[in-house]
Simulated scan of single mutants.
Amino acid sequence: MTLRFALFGTATLFAGAAWAADPDLLVFDYSGFEDPAFHSEYAAKHGQPPSFTFFGDEEEAFQKLRSGFKADVSHVCAGSVTKWVESGIVESWDISRIDAWGDLNADLKGTDVAETGEEVYFVPSDFGSTAIAYNTEEVPEADVSTLDVFTNADYAGRVTLPDNVDDAYALAYLATGTTDWSDVTDDQFQAASDWLREVHPNLRTYWVDPAELAQLLATGEVLIAWAWNETLPTMTEEGFPIGFQREPEEGSSLWLCGYVNLKDGEGAEDKAYDFMNALLHPSSTMPLLEAGYGHANAAAMAELGDEALTEVGLGPIDAPVLAQLPMPGALRERQSAEFEKIKAGF
């Protein structure tokens, strides 16, 4: 994703600033994921957490790594994985060293590696849903039964989309009848782009981070948003009349992030696997969930029950789901270029 922020009470950290700890492992990450509760087993084993350094968005991270910056592992969301692999900055994981590999959600892994023999460059760790967040006192439930609500003239100037190409196109594909972006045709791409252009004049703004979105909803500037599931518990805790519709007739989407093993990292390779095993350990499930993130460890998630997942917008649904799994690099570049034009009004 362009940007993923965790809503924790941690100190403010700026992109590029290092949080020193174990000098033998440097994790390149979004600010917030250094929370020790997310990988407590690592500190239990080594006596200290990994070192972290941060980026603001994945394009910044990609360019920094391409220019020679060294780290050992990096957080990246699925839409960017193909581009990173094709650039040669990552190397494959040895899944025999990933303790929880067999417990991970098979839909998030995207392939049965045991059968195909394919190399694994991306290990999923965290995910969430993106759906319609709305003010239940101002917006009838019937209006959010379809993604057409984003083009509804009654809400002109009271609607927002994320300033995020993956989330925006996931919405647009769903709205135009595409539920799998792994093999999008030219016609499907054009239909999605045309739909985003239709929505653009209806928007109040493109929101950048969850704090901004929460403010837009709380002040009433925005009544309807395409939002991450973490918006639901955050706004509920603040007493805001929030609805989170994951079952419009066209469906909703599932974003997915994980970690890649960076080539030429200067740290200890064994500790990269220790980090992944700690992150995927069941002890990390509840801390991630409390921050609004689903955990890729399906076995651990199942232990929590559907009610706990539903409370944070991750429960089971009866509607199409577009999973934001790795896509062809050329398609993502095409979408990125088109999205910039759309936001500029062209």
Score class of each variant (00 low, 15 high):
residue 257 C to V: 09
residue 136 T to Q: 15
residue 68 G to C: 03
residue 171 L to I: 06
residue 117 G to P: 10
residue 172 A to S: 06
residue 204 R to K: 15
residue 330 A to P: 00
residue 214 A to P: 09
residue 53 T to N: 00
residue 335 Q to Y: 00
residue 325 L to Y: 06
residue 231 T to M: 15
residue 200 H to R: 14
residue 239 G to A: 01
residue 97 R to L: 12
residue 143 D to E: 13
residue 20 A to G: 01
residue 107 D to L: 13
residue 184 V to Q: 01
residue 119 E to R: 10
residue 24 D to E: 13
residue 203 L to Y: 00
residue 213 L to N: 08
residue 175 A to N: 03
residue 71 A to W: 08
residue 99 D to K: 14
residue 94 D to E: 12
residue 142 A to R: 13
residue 3 L to F: 06
residue 224 I to T: 02
residue 231 T to N: 12
residue 164 N to Y: 04
residue 75 H to A: 06
residue 196 L to K: 04
residue 49 P to A: 13
residue 107 D to F: 11
residue 288 L to R: 04
residue 280 L to E: 06
residue 33 F to K: 07
residue 94 D to H: 07
residue 201 P to V: 06
residue 324 Q to L: 15
residue 343 K to D: 04
residue 274 D to E: 08
residue 292 G to F: 08
residue 80 S to C: 06
residue 201 P to A: 08
residue 156 A to W: 01
residue 294 G to W: 10
residue 108 L to I: 05
residue 189 F to N: 00
residue 21 A to V: 04
residue 221 E to I: 03
residue 207 W to D: 13
residue 144 V to M: 12
residue 331 L to M: 00
residue 276 M to L: 15
residue 184 V to M: 01
residue 200 H to V: 00
residue 32 G to S: 13
residue 200 H to C: 00
residue 237 E to S: 14
residue 324 Q to P: 04
residue 297 N to Y: 15
residue 72 D to H: 02
residue 50 P to S: 10
residue 298 A to E: 15
residue 260 V to D: 08
residue 45 K to V: 05
residue 144 V to A: 08
residue 319 A to S: 14
residue 284 S to G: 15
residue 242 I to R: 03
residue 169 Y to V: 01
residue 5 F to G: 02
residue 323 A to R: 13
residue 110 G to T: 03
residue 250 E to K: 09
residue 254 L to I: 07
residue 109 K to V: 13
residue 277 N to Q: 07
residue 231 T to K: 04
residue 52 F to T: 02
residue 124 P to W: 12
residue 115 E to I: 06
residue 8 F to Q: 08
residue 295 H to V: 05
residue 199 V to C: 06
